[in-house]
Structure formats: structure tokens, C-alpha cells
Write a protein that binds this DNA or RNA. Structure first.
Lengths: 216, 216
DNA sequence: ACGTGTGAACCGATTCACAGCA
DNA sequence: TGCTGTGAATCGGTTCACACGT
């Protein structure tokens, strides 16, 4: 599989660059809280296990944000990154599947810093439908298309059992969803104008097991 | 093959290879359930968005498991992968932080297929300590070192707030933990004989936002 | 003929190293 | 001097292409 590349104005970079920008932003905000005004690529990357050259290269795809001999102005760079990442406006998302994980995500506070707002949730279980968790009403999955279209939601999390994840995906896409964060342990098939990111906790743990098991 | 045994330690491959092995295993098990006996690299990778060459290369680091002209015997390959991945024995793990996410993970069934068993959980909240979730007793985080050492646990999940994650990490490592799956949004510092894998849901979502925001 | 296993070629991401500027 | 920005060099993972075995 060829790795998907992102090209903006003839400049190409990988999704890894984008993930790192999020990490930079998170640390810059911590620095801002500590009232630190300037930071060098060397200092900030020490906290992150990333090379200073990588940091500078990542930023270079989007412009010149530093002052030679000085470093980067923390507040200014935060603004720039928020702009680059597209989180200066609110992103409304849906959650499909309000089981253990789904309901944990409905209460997850970590999204708000990126201006992500869970707007609606769906489940098939009659006992859950109508309930409100953390201000989010659980809808009947039968209404999925209608609600997604009405609310013009473009992003969704999938926390369903794996057997139904592909079907849900198809329905989400036909309703206008363009990005999916998938927690179900299956590879979803979508048209190539739909973006998918997978979070596979069992595989991540398995990787650690392999490493421990093969030391030396 | 005599070659593979000797060379496995000299041959280098990435953790991506290991993650893919987990994916292969998952799909092979599905095929086994459907009573499919043989599968070619071509067929199995169609389901996974991975190239056939990648599949063969990944396996080649560990030996020769296929029959030329035929493909791979499903049951046999499952056994081999379980062996390679080190999940022919049970792995006992700990969970630190029984908040929304932590308690969802205590109930998560997806680990069992990889022979992963959550043995113990820790929290600081007196109201949670002593409770039992899904058969797992929540211990006082004050007893972390003692329990980890007593149970000889080598793997842990961290689901604490980010502010305390580094402190918990230090304590886990000093108690003998060698692998950490970190859900807290911070970069943890550890000695290089400790393995860390990060699951950062906000960054994953942010990546999708970026893609949607920069189309065309 | 068919599909694996694998060295070689390729390609993209990371790092280097230094010019350029405060 | 100090640190950024970036073309060039490097490094490593993926894919190619074909020899080999069935």
C-alpha cells in the first residue's frame, strides 16, 4: 500500500507531520501557561523525543515562524498551529456505538482543546436510546442518516462491534461523513475521498508483548 | 529453514511489521472460522489494504510458512503467528487510573484474543478502591509497587490524568514494569529498556480534521 | 502454471550540515 | 554568537521482479 501523502501548494508531507504538529501545540500550550515567551526547537523537542531538525522541517512546510538566533514566540506559534490544524473553528462529530468505550468517549474531555465537540451519539439498544450522557442525547441508529445530514456532521467515531462496523461505515459515508476514527478491530473499506484513522488497542499492546518477548 | 533461525536476530524489521502480524492473525482466525484451509498472500491482503509483497516480506523475517503454488495453510499460520507474537502464553497486565477510559478498558473483551488478561487496577479515589469491575479488584494506588512486584506484572496501561502520568510511569518502572501502553496525552520519559506505545485519540482525530480542512 | 521467498531497486521520511539572519 | 530554514545526504521501509519449488 502506498502511503498517503498530503500535498498543499505543491509541498508534500506525511500525516506523521500533522500528528506531530498536534503534539507541538499541546506542549506549546503548557509553555504558555508557564508564561514562557520564547522557545527554541532544541528545547521544545527535548520534551517530546523528537529531533530539533524534525520540528523545524515540519514547520517549514507551512511557513517561517521562528526568529533566527532567538527561537519561536510561543503565543504566536500556538495561533499559527491552531490555524494550520484547522481548529480555529469548531468541529462537530458523531459517535456510533455507546458501549463501554463509546460512553467513555462521550465523557472524554481531551477533545475540547482541539475544538472538537461531540454533537450526537447513536446506538441500537432501546434501553440506551433517549438517554443523555454528558449533555449528548443518544439517538436511535435507525435515524443515523437523517441526523447526520440535518446536523451536517462530517466526522464520526465508530465504537461498534466489528461485525457491524462496515455497514455503519457505508451508512455514515452515504450520509455525508468524510472522516472516521475507527475503534472497531476491522479494516474498513471506503472510497478514497473518505479519510480513516484506526485506533487498535489490542495491536498496540501486542506490539509491546512482542518486544518484551524478544529481548536480547 | 536453518537460515531463518540464525538470522532472525540479525535481521531487522520495524514495529510496523509486528502490528501487521497482529492484523494478519485476526483475519486468519476469521478465515479459520469459515473453514477456509488455504489462503494466498493476494487474497488475504485484499481484505486489509496491505500489499501482497508486504505480507510475504513480513512473514519472511520469521521463516517460510507458505507452499509455493498454493498459499498458506490457515491453521498452521495461525499457530506460527501466535508463537511469533508470544501469545501462546498468558500476559498479565495492570491498569492505572480507573476513570471513564480505565473502567471501559477493564471491561474490554478485545484483549483476550491475544491472551492478555487484566490482573489488577489502581486508582487514587477512595470511593473506587475495593470495588470490583469485571472481576478485577481496584487497588489503592499507594500499593502499586507492592502489588506489581508480588504479581510479577510486566505490562501496564496508563489511563491517568496527564499531570500524574510521568510519576506513575516512574513508579511502575521501578516496580518492574517493562512495557507501557499510554493513553495519557503526554510524552513519557523512560530508560531505553522500557517500551512505550502511545494511544492519542485527540491527535488521531485532529489528523482527520486537518485532512478535511485541506482538501483539494 | 501458480504463488512463495527474497535480493535489488525504489521511494519517502528523517537527519545532516551549513548558509543566512538577528 | 545562536538558532532558524532548507537543500543534500542518508537511512530504512516498501515494492518490484523473478528465481524457485510444487
Amino acid at each position: 500500500m502506498p502511503k498517503s501523502k498530503i500535498c498543499i501548494r505543491k509541498i508534500c508531507f506525511s500525516v506523521e507531520t500533522v500528528k506531530r504538529l498536534s503534539l507541538y501545540l499541546r506542549d506549546l500550550r503548557k509553555l504558555a501557561k508557564k508564561k514562557i515567551q520564547f522557545i527554541s526547537s532544541n528545547k521544545i523537542t527535548q520534551l517530546l523525543n523528537i529531533s530539533p531538525a524534525q520540528f523545524r522541517k515540519d514547520l517549514s512546510y507551512f511557513g517561517e515562524f521562528g526568529k533566527r538566533g532567538v527561537g519561536y514566540e510561543v503565543e504566536k506559534l500556538i495561533k499559527k498551529l491552531e490555524e494550520i490544524l484547522g481548529i480555529n473553528k469548531e468541529w462537530r462529530i458523531a459517535v456510533v456505538g455507546v458501549g463501554r468505550l463509546g460512553s467513555a468517549l462521550l465523557r472524554f474531555e481531551g477533545f475540547s482543546k482541539f475544538n472538537i465537540k461531540i454533537k450526537t451519539a447513536f446506538d441500537i439498544d432501546k434501553k440506551k436510546i433517549g438517554k443523555v450522557i454528558n449533555g449528548i442525547k443518544i439517538e436511535d441508529v435507525g435515524n443515523l442518516e437523517r441526523v447526520i445530514k440535518k446536523e451536517k456532521i462530517k466526522l464520526s467515531l465508530i465504537c461498534t462491534p466489528p461485525q457491524v462496523a462496515q455497514d455503519i461505515t457505508n451508512r455514515l459515508v452515504s450520509a455525508g461523513i468524510r472522516g472516521i476514527l475507527n475503534f472497531a478491530p476491522v479494516a474498513l473499506k471506503v472510497a478514497n475521498n473518505v479519510f480513516i484513522s484506526n485506533v487498535d488497542m489490542a495491536c498496540e499492546l501486542e506490539q509491546l508483548i512482542f518486544l518484551l518477548n524478544n529481548e536480547r
